Simulated assay, not measured.
Amino acid sequence: MTTRIDNLKLLCFASEIDDATIDQAKETAGLPFVHPHVALMPDAHHGMGSAVGTVIPTVDAVIPAAVGVDIGCGMIAVRTTLDATAIAELDLAALRISIESAIPLSPGNYNRSTARYAFTAARIAALEAMAEADGVDLSHSPTWREQLGSLGGGNHFIELCLDEDGRVWMFLHSGSRGVGNRIAKRHIAIAQKLCRQWHIPLPQDDLAYLPDGTPELDTYLGDLAWAQRFAFENRAEMMDRFRQAFAHWVGHVGEPADLEAERINCHHNYTVRERHGGKDVWLTRKGAIDAHEGVRGIIPGSMGTRSYIVTGRGHGGALCSAPHGAGRRFSRREAKRRFTEADLAAAMTGIEYRHGAEWVDEIPQAYKDIDVVMADAERLVSVDHTLRQILNVKGT
């Protein structure tokens, strides 16, 4: 379904949505530089500044808090050459432990060394060169190199999945880690300071923006591009480590890369230059993926539910975008109040995962029904593969 809200520049593609999320979207859609309209994705829910699952096209301005503090957060998926029969007798717990050894988990937990894997050096060198060429100041994050290849916490995860034909997929979700967070917070504060200084009325401080023609916007765009690249490479780094652990687990004697059939790596928190409504705009996808016609994408469910590999249909009303996941139904605090560790164990029956009360706020019941989200997204994407988890790893 698609609903235009109160004749505003706001289209909603969600059949299940709360008033707080709609109110946030109305505030964003009411900004004078929005063109042609804001699109609310099927998984939209209340967030900081603007709702998660909001696609925001802006002319000559960018809203740093709308991009969010996890710049470039997104998904990566690899289809392997193996199927379920090849791993049926193997111990999933052993793979989980290997993954946990290879990839630092949880906020603030980084690599002790950048020399453990041979493929890491090239990524660090490329990011260093990009920062130098574009004048990106990273003095606020002296440990950014050690952050590359680390997962984080919250809803970031690593999974082993099977698709509808029993083929094995590697799957993970993460972003730009602490360095992206510091870049975001710095520019959010600058935008808020400037809007106050210029006496610009705003519905709320987190909709403060940086206008075209200012050095502040130029600096932000350079820093933003670097953080988005870091997030992309961070996922690729973790996937290469996952692939190596997987190859060892299955007893593969050749190169780990030989086990990889295809790879998809996509952002869902980012800003990019696109053309919509006859104008070149800065398109911010806050909890949404690129769904231009023919573009491959990833829509994960919550832990314990299905996930999807999709191809975009190029729906203009949705600004060529699609949902980025199930979307939260309950806050983390509310989920911990409603559910128990036993509830989580029941929901994760048959899936190898890290047991403990720390993960109760990620229980599938805390999220929207992914089947409803995908039904709402039917005009936005076509489904290529449906995946179910057999192993899940999360940070706290």
Rank of each mutant, 00 (worst) to 15 (best):
P201F: 04
A25P: 00
C266N: 00
S139C: 01
G154R: 12
D43L: 10
P215D: 09
L95T: 10
D343K: 10
D280A: 07
V310S: 10
R235M: 10
N155L: 13
H156P: 13
W249A: 04
P107D: 15
H156S: 13
L138V: 08
Y270T: 08
A88N: 01
S50Q: 11
V360E: 03
D280F: 02
H35N: 01
V179W: 09
R241L: 07
P107H: 10
I190F: 03
V310A: 03
D83E: 02
L391H: 06
L391T: 04
D290T: 10
A257L: 06
A84Q: 13
Y220M: 08
F33Q: 09
T21K: 07
V272E: 12
L224N: 14
F157C: 11
P142K: 08
D258Y: 07
D212E: 15
L319Q: 04
G254Y: 09
A357F: 11
V34L: 01
M75S: 01
I76Y: 09
L105E: 10
R275I: 14
H315R: 12
G149I: 04
H355V: 15
I103M: 10
P203K: 04
V393E: 11
A247S: 05
C73R: 08
E260H: 10
R333Y: 10
N109H: 14
M130C: 08
T214V: 09
L92S: 12
R243V: 15
N265H: 05
T21W: 00
T114I: 12
H292I: 12
E334S: 07
Q228D: 11
F230A: 03
R285C: 03
A347N: 05
G149C: 07
F232V: 13
L148K: 05
R328P: 05
S321C: 06
R273V: 15
E255S: 14
T54G: 04
P201W: 04
A357C: 05
R196W: 13
Q24Y: 07
N155I: 12
R229C: 14
W144P: 08
R229A: 15
E159P: 15
L194T: 11
V373Y: 08
E255W: 05
I190T: 12
I97H: 14
G175V: 05
A225E: 14
L8P: 10
H276P: 10
F119M: 04
D218R: 13
D240H: 14
L8F: 00
G72D: 03
W359N: 14
S321T: 01
I22D: 03
D134G: 11
I298L: 14
G47I: 00
K193T: 11
G304C: 05
A126T: 06
L207E: 07
L148D: 08
E16R: 06
D212Q: 14
R263A: 06
Q228R: 11
I188T: 02
R79D: 08
I370N: 06
T58L: 13
L319I: 02
T284S: 11
M41S: 00
V373D: 02
I299W: 09
E89P: 04
A84E: 15
P256C: 02
Q192V: 02
I390V: 15
G312S: 01
L82P: 01
V383L: 07
D369N: 08
A118W: 01
R229I: 11
P104F: 06
R241V: 06
A375W: 09
G135V: 08
